[in-house]
Amino acid sequence: MAAFLSGIIQDKILHLHAHVDNPMFKKIFVQIQAFLTRVISPPYFFAFAEKCMPWLILGLILTLGYGLIGALYLAPADYLQGEGFRILYVHVPCAFLSLLIYSLMAVAATLGLVWRLKLAFAVMHQSAMLGAIFTFLALMTGSLWGKPMWGTFWIWDARLTSELILLFLYLGVIALHSALPNRRLADQATAVLVLLGFVDIPIIHYSVNWWNTLHQGSTIRLLAPSLITPSMLYPLLAMTAAFCCYFAITLILRLRCDLNTEVKV
C-alpha cells in the first residue's frame, strides 16, 4: 500500500516538475522557489521566531487575561441561554482554530509538494497534533454546551458530524505519517491526504447554511454587522487571539524539537 501510494505521489511530482519547460513559467517557478527557500528556511525562520516569541507570550498574557475576565465576569448573561453561554468563549476559539490549522496545513502541504520545502512539511506534520487537540476540545466543549441548551450531548447534526470527520482526518494524518518509515515518503503521502481532506473545511463552514441544522448559524461576520453585542464580542475576539498566540508559541516549540532532533539523528 505504501509502495503504491509512493509510486502515485512520485509520478504526480515528476509530472508537475516536467511541465516546468516553458522558459517564462520556469523563471517564475525558480524565482518563487529561491524566495521561499530563503525565507522559509529553518535558520531564517527560527531567527524570526526567536524575535517574535516574547511578543507572542506578551500577547497571550494580555489577551487571555482580558478574555477570561470578560468571559467570566464582564460579559452579561445571555437573555435566552443564561450563564451557560459562557462556554462559547472556549468553544468558538477551539472550533475556529480547528479550521484555521487545517487550512494552514493545506497551504504547507502545497508548498512542500510543489517547492519541496522541508520546513513546510514540518509545519504540516507538527500542526496536525495541535489541530486534532483543538478539534477534540471544540467537540467536547460543544457537547457540554449542547446538554443544557439542546438536551443532549451529541446529535448527528451536519456541523457536528463534519467537525467529527475533521477530527478523524487529523488522526488519519498523524497515523499515516507515523506508519511510513521513510520521512520523505511520509511527508509527501501526508501532504496528499491533507489536500484531499481540505474539501471538509468549506463543508464545515457552510453546513449551517446548506442544511437545516440544530447548530446555530454564524454570529460573527466579516462583511456584515455581527449578531452579538460588543460587550460579549470583544472578550470573544480576545480569547480567539489568545488561542492563536498559544498555537503559534506551541508550534514554534514543536518545530524546534522536531528539526533539532532530526539534525542530531
Binding site: 476540545l137 467536547m140 457540554l144
Partner: peptide, 26 residues
C-alpha cells in the same frame, strides 16, 4: 453560574488542562 456551573467549569478546566499539558510536553 445560575445552575450552569456544572457544564461551564468542566469546559474551562478541560481546555486549560489539555492546552497546558500540550504546551508543557514540547
Amino acid at each position: 453560574m445560575g445552575g450552569y456551573g456544572i457544564y461551564v467549569w468542566p469546559a474551562y478546566i478541560l481546555v486549560a488542562g489539555i492546552l497546558g499539558l500540550q504546551w508543557f510536553l514540547p
